[in-house]
Design a protein around this nucleic acid. Sequence first.
DNA 1: TTATAACCGAACACATTGTTCCGAAACAAG
DNA 2: CTTGTTTCGGAACAATGTGTTCGGTTATAA
Lengths: 204, 204
Amino acid sequence: MSGSPRRESSDRRVRRTRRAVQQALTELILEKGYETVTVTDLINRANVGRSTFYAHFTDKQDVLFSNLDELSDLLHLAPASRPGVLFAFSLPMFEHLQEQRRLVRALLGRRGGGVVMARGEQIMAAVVRDELLAGLPSGSTPPASLDLMITCVVGAFMALLRKWADGELTATPAEMDAAFRAVVTPGVEEALAASPRGRGPAPG
Amino acid sequence: MSGSPRRESSDRRVRRTRRAVQQALTELILEKGYETVTVTDLINRANVGRSTFYAHFTDKQDVLFSNLDELSDLLHLAPASRPGVLFAFSLPMFEHLQEQRRLVRALLGRRGGGVVMARGEQIMAAVVRDELLAGLPSGSTPPASLDLMITCVVGAFMALLRKWADGELTATPAEMDAAFRAVVTPGVEEALAASPRGRGPAPG
DNA sequence: TTATAACCGAACACATTGTTCCGAAACAAG
DNA sequence: CTTGTTTCGGAACAATGTGTTCGGTTATAA
């Protein structure tokens, strides 16, 4: 029964154990890929009793998610750095991920099982929504298709990200960023500009 | 040892068995979701011996994929119906999937495990590539970022599709199609038009 | 020092997978 | 209808993984 206890324990043993397990997970992910890592692997590598493991985590996934919170920060802070630019998170994101390439690849690639991708999409969607709402002409109503638009943008970005991590695409962060924005930005800006008040989009 | 034996067997028992298992799978998917279906479930529902199952299929996934080939046809035929329109596959796709909504939802949604999504992406990527190449100004060189572009487009589309199947988005096929094309088309057309020969893009 | 909380690890019940074996049944061909 | 071949059934099996329980040990905080 642990779920995701936000706070750090005061007991040193607890911290030690949790750290050991988390560390073991990233090691094993790099070696075997997330999906094939078993709980048994984890407790062996971490030198932790079986019962101890289940006293701290419910799952393999629980361990994984306990390591996945810093990502959100990076994304939410990014837009402030380049005000006025749509999807400013893009470049910093690609750059950041290139540094931790191996782990990212193991987590986001096809062998990663998609759990991390799912989490990432949620986080990203929140960021994109903020940006889009901020990018609207002041005083205008969000178009009804906002959610569809967000989904498109996030979908495009994540797809790019995954293939990149998977090694199916070779490009620099700058190129990735450029391609992403080139495809997505024109359509989004048109859509944003064209819906001041409850009016539907005005095609052709 | 079966992999994917293209041809239908002449032995009635074989056809019967394979059908029973495939049928059992879609039933169980609708009831429990793909990931939680076990081989044991399958053979029970299909009334098939364990050894018999493994004589025909290697996997759960093998059964799934044996049912997943008609999709490709639909996508590849679509562009011919509306010549000159980018991403003509979009609307027919959404419409087709709406008819088989429940199964599609079980297969493509989050509970579907992503196997079908992965397959779908491959198929889609081929279709999109064809369309983009066909849409280039005649005699021009495909931009180096073609793969990135394809990834974006496919990613956006698949994301839309998944959320829709998952029930996280409520919209008509026409609305889905419109949103998809609204976001993606402008950027793509700009990019296509702007790269006849190694020249950089010429904005504004 | 002491009470408490965390740890270890073995043992357990349970589920799932994939293989093997052989008698019974269904089949296609003649 | 007979015959030789193929498939089926289903039990039994080994292997692996999961999550729980329990009693004894040890580190920690106060």
